[in-house]
């Protein structure tokens, strides 16, 4: 078994007495694709937002690469190599696709504070940016404003932007939410192609995406960990089936 890259101890989030995430111990091993699944309101996204420091936890600790990151700022978490995506596609709409990717390259490689230089200084990142756009299938759309891209293309652009940082670990928040079947397949292929040398933790609602893609699956219900294991183990767990009953039960049954 490989080493543990991201770990939480007793992670808890309370909102005015309501416990959204309750004492979650999570261990993500390096090099794996780990899924966090569960019915609506299970606390997946809350959990996710705490991991990236966009929400402060009420209790509990978070360790990344053995370092306690519970108290540090979101931008600094990203600098350590733990980069997140968002459920609502997160692009810079009025900038071109190329500029979107370049912003990530620029952050990783410097001169972001240069206010006295011409932005032509950024052209040295163009080759790498075009390569990344090619990798996610957006060749030819480099000069299109990100806001004008189709939904699936925006998600692809978001992944290209995240990849530009070359993060050790990526956190994907429902990467296939609201997509057509064709787009879902493309994104799954994309995630598979970028996993080499990386660790991925993804929140997912769609069980057919998780199957065959993720190595480990953690099931959350009402803020607690219900089950953990590979797809075969988890999908046969009677408690998991019960938790999904009424919502996604048919999906689980035919899987």
């Amino acid at each position: 078994m490989s080493e543990i890259l991201l770990e939480t101890h007793g992670l808890t989030k309370e909102f005015n007495g309501f416990t959204a995430v309750d004492n979650v111990d999570l261990q993500v091993r390096a090099g794996t694709i780990h899924a966090l699944i569960g019915p609506n309101g299970a606390g997946k996204t809350t959990c996710f937002n705490m991991l990236t420091k966009f929400l402060p936890p009420t209790r509990g600790r978070i360790h990344f690469k053995g370092r306690d990151i519970t108290g540090i700022a979101p931008a600094d978490v990203a600098r350590l190599g733990l980069v997140r995506s968002f459920q609502i596609s997160a692009v810079f709409p009025r900038l071109t696709a190329l500029e979107n990717v370049r912003l990530a390259l620029q952050r990783a490689r410097g001169n972001s504070f240069d206010f006295w230089r011409s932005e032509t200084a950024l052209r040295r990142y163009d080759n790498r940016a075009h390569q990344l756009l090619f990798d996610v299938g957006l060749t030819g759309l480099a000069d299109t404003a990100a806001g004008l891209l189709a939904y699936g293309q925006k998600r692809a652009l978001e992944i290209a932007t995240t990849l530009a940082l070359d993060p050790e670990m990526m956190l994907l928040d429902e990467p296939t939410a609201g997509m057509t079947h064709a787009d879902v397949d493309r994104i799954v292929e994309l995630i598979r192609s970028i996993r080499t040398g990386r660790t991925i933790l993804m929140v997912e609602h769609n069980l057919s995406v998780v199957e065959g893609l993720c190595d480990t699956i953690t099931v959350l219900t009402r803020g607690r960990v219900l089950a953990e294991g590979d797809y075969a183990t988890v999908s046969r767990n009677p408690e998991v089936i019960a938790a999904y009953l009424g919502s996604d039960a048919p999906e689980l049954a035919h899987a």
Binding site: R79, V83, A90, R94, A104, S112, D114, E119
Partner: peptide
């Protein structure tokens, strides 16, 4: 004009467009 059209200005535009995303890319906005 130079500030707006500089590498720094590019980051400013990104912050204006989507600050959480800029943060998630590691920018201390």
């Amino acid at each position: 004009h130079r500030v707006i059209h500089s590498p720094f200005g590019q980051v400013l535009k990104a912050i204006r467009e989507n600050e959480p995303r800029a943060t998630s890319l590691g920018y201390r906005t």
